[in-house]
Nucleic acid binder design. Structure first.
Lengths: 225, 225, 225, 225
DNA sequence: TATGAATGAGCGTTCATTCAT
DNA sequence: AATGAATGAACGCTCATTCAT
């Protein structure tokens, strides 16, 4: 009880502060003083700041990974060997993402964290995520490949990450964007609606025509590395 | 001369290190020792670390802003009041982005920095960028509106940010993504090629059909905040 | 049983680590984790780190003290009031030292611990040793005095500690010295042989002529404290 | 001036505290607060605690090494190829040791530090000393060999270390020993006098008869490792 | 104009010890 | 009798910044 309390309080506080300000900008003292636990408790329960960061991720990604596997199982069974359409795949992913953090503000936090994992943490987070969640990601990528058989592998790879970028960027900056939206257009979009907005865009993006053969003269002319 | 030298050496080193490891993870000692200048030189020449970061950005964004204005002038003149097509707008932007940093590895650096500005820096960077470069962005947004007259304002707003997310996220995680790409497909994509890949995707995304009227029952069922 | 086990495991582990790295450099965590016992067990069973250190010593010195007393009883009886020769006294001491730690590597450990007691531990160890083992040491010193009647007390005091220094230093650095010996001369000296080497040296040292009257001009000229 | 002041104050304070309580037991806060300098000054001027320890040693050993070389030069020249007698060699060493720290309490400190270097510091100090001062030591060992031509190399090796043990052990436990001496005999021996005491003992020890052929039955019977 | 020295604040981590069970 | 949890203090070190010259 006391232990669960401390560990949970640390994780709850850490995920909020990490999401707000990044890993390096959040000190253990920030976390422990806000969580009202002893500074040494982090090292006692988690071993190091690095491990705390990973634990914060695991609390989201472990259930996500499990549910996503289950959802893919279910949809594969449903399609019984036939190709699962792109729309369905995206729908499954969206639903799973939304299921995981049913409470409070945690979808935004989850997305911010995912974004941080890509843009901060000199590799150790990326390595951790690949090691622990690479399987489910690969499985999704495999199904995506079947759903878009005409797309070259390389092209699909980049489009997948364009899509991920859209989603993560949008959700992780959601508050700011909603503020602007409200000031500019007097409209407030719910997360649910936002996902409705995203769907056709993502589908169209994945289905876009291939780029003109690269290096064509009429295009961009100067470039670097 | 000696002063210019020092200032330039600091900026050159700082932009590389910032792009590699982020702002918080790069100390002034890292910068000054690598640049072989005195530690106090940063505070002497720039006043503070924050101001150094802004100076690093200004060195890219000032010429970019200027050229982008000029390019938009030119394209508006060319189309003489008629609507500038979406593809052309995107082409202009891409070309300007590529023109700015003609040397070395600085396109990647520029892109990484843009990503960092959004994902790191507790607001002071975003504020700085909006204040200094908001005008040219608004002008582009205005032309974008003319180029997509059928899109509701609200829809365009979100799609613009989906697009921004794709671009910024992709570039700010570029090294990681290229590592994966190389490991997975044995292919190395240059920034120039990547922009070629982005173009049709972005165009398709902006031109995607509007979503089915929101709130339709068959869609996502659970949601958060 | 379980308790005895725990106490013994702690002592076994502690003596090795203390001997290897000193007291301050060995944490209770080092000890308890290597001994696979609970961290709190040390404070539970011994009260404090200080007391653990003393317990480690007692495990060697209690039997040593007892045996040494017995051996001196026996030799005094044998010489029935007559002066016990220096060589015999040294032989008795050497034999007793060797008898105590019949197992494993513990002679070296014992010696290292003795050295540490002198060079580390801010007095509390020295006090403990004097209080608990002062009697047997005094008895030996008394016999030594009888065996070297021509030596001024003061001189004998210092020579005794020169001798102790040789022995403890040599044995506590034994591994390093044997490594050098082997590399340099291709020869490996056993502890038993080493004691044979020591004997004439120690005897000669104790029997050395007295120093020229101190302060004689021809000698050292500058000095401090 | 300000710099010299700070660096010197740190070194002066550090050497006293290190000598009194050892390296691990002396914190940088102990040193800097006693020296009335900023805590960060140690890392600024020395880089790390380890380097500070080495700097403390270097301040003694660099001049010692230089003077010892010079003294050996001089004595070799004086004996012009003939064998330098053992007594002279020891006299030269003793004199050099005494010359180095002409001021205050620093001879005792020097000796305590030498003792610590051997008994504490998991090798990094020994390595440092060997690297920086190995040459002069080897030179002395070489002359020692010439001075004791009848001694087997192996025997000389051990006797040299017996002697080292006496000296280092005595000096590193000096305070404790002097306490005992004063309590027991009401006499206080200066370092200078102590060296006078040591001389005939060391000479006798080096000149002791060779041990009876090893393995003789009448000797020690049990042994360890 | 430029820099070596210095500083106060804060960092992540480890420590021996205590407490509640 | 024994232990997981927790704690306050202290550790070595690095930080951006300031100061005196």
């Amino acid at each position: 009880m006391a232990q669960t309390d401390t560990v949970t309080r640390i994780l709850d506080t850490a995920e909020v502060l990490f999401a707000e300000r990044g890993f390096a900008e959040t000190s253990l003292r920030n976390i422990t003083s806000k969580a009202k636990v002893n500074l040494a408790a982090v090292n006692y329960h988690f071993g190091s700041k690095k491990s705390l960061i990973q634990a914060v991720f695991a609390r989201y990604l472990d259930p996500f990974s499990e549910r996503f596997h289950a959802a893919l199982d279910s949809v594969e069974q449903q399609y019984a060997g036939r190709q699962v359409p792109l729309e369905v795949l995206l729908e499954v992913m969206a639903r799973t993402v939304l299921e995981v953090p049913a409470e409070r503000n945690s979808l935004r936090t989850f997305m911010r964290l995912l974004g941080l994992a890509y843009t901060q943490g000199q590799g150790h987070m990326r390595r951790y995520i690949r090691e622990h969640y690479g399987t489910v990601f690969s499985r999704f990528a495999e199904l995506l490949k079947l759903a878009t058989p005409d797309l070259p592998d390389n092209e699909r790879f980049w489009r997948l990450h364009f899509m991920l970028g859209s989603v993560i960027f949008t959700f992780s900056g959601l508050d700011a964007l909603r503020d602007i939206e409200e000031a500019e257009y007097g409209h407030h979009t719910t997360v649910r609606e936002l996902i409705q907005h995203m769907r056709p865009v993502v589908v169209a993006a994945m289905a876009a025509p291939l780029p003109a053969s690269l290096g064509d003269g009429e295009a961009v002319t100067q470039a670097a590395s």
